Amino acid sequence: MTTSPPEVLDSSPDTRNETASAAPDSPASLATLGSEKRGSVEQIALLAFIVVPFIALLAAVPLMWGWGVSWLDLGLLTAMYFIGCHGITIGFHRYFTHGSFKAKRPLRITLAVLGSLAVEGPVVRWVADHRKHHKFSDAEGDPHSPWRYGETVPALMKGLWWAHVGWMFDQEQTPQQKYAPDLIKDPAIRAVSRQFVLWTTVSLLLPAVVGGLATMSWQGALTAFFWGSLVRVALLHHVTWSINSICHAVGKRPFKSRDKSGNVWWLAILSCGESWHNLHHADPTSARHGVERGQLDSSARIIRWMELAGWAYDVRWPARSRIDSRRKEQPRQAA
Rank of each mutant, 00 (worst) to 15 (best):
S4K: 13
P5Y: 04
D10R: 14
S12F: 03
S12G: 13
E18Q: 15
D25G: 12
S26F: 07
L30Q: 14
A31D: 14
T32V: 15
S40Q: 14
S40E: 13
V41L: 15
A45T: 11
L47R: 10
A48H: 10
A48T: 12
A48K: 07
V51A: 13
L57K: 03
A59F: 04
V61C: 11
P62K: 02
P62F: 01
M64K: 13
W65L: 14
S70I: 03
L72P: 06
A79W: 00
A79C: 12
M80S: 09
M80I: 09
M80C: 11
Y81R: 04
Y81H: 08
F82I: 08
H93P: 05
R94C: 06
H98G: 03
G99L: 01
F101P: 02
R105T: 15
V119F: 06
G121D: 04
V123W: 02
V124T: 07
D129N: 09
D129T: 05
H134R: 07
D138N: 05
D138R: 00
A139R: 14
A139F: 11
D142G: 04
Y149A: 13
E151Q: 15
V153C: 12
V153D: 10
A163Q: 03
G166R: 01
M168T: 06
F169W: 10
E172F: 09
Q173S: 12
Q177I: 14
L183Y: 00
K185F: 08
K185I: 12
D186S: 09
Q195R: 13
Q195K: 12
F196P: 08
V197D: 11
S203D: 03
L206D: 05
L206N: 04
A208G: 07
G212Y: 01
T215E: 05
T215Q: 03
S217I: 08
G220F: 00
A221N: 02
T223M: 06
F225K: 02
L230I: 05
V231E: 01
V231K: 00
V239W: 02
T240H: 02
T240I: 09
S242G: 11
I246Q: 00
A249E: 05
K252V: 13
K252C: 09
P254M: 03
S261M: 05
G262L: 00
W266F: 15
A268T: 04
G273W: 00
E274D: 10
W276R: 03
H281Q: 09
D283N: 11
D283F: 03
P284A: 02
T285S: 13
A287E: 01
R288Q: 10
H289P: 08
G290H: 00
G294P: 07
G294E: 07
Q295Y: 03
R301A: 14
I303G: 00
R304G: 10
M306S: 10
G310T: 06
Y313T: 14
V315P: 01
R316C: 08
D324A: 08
K328Q: 15
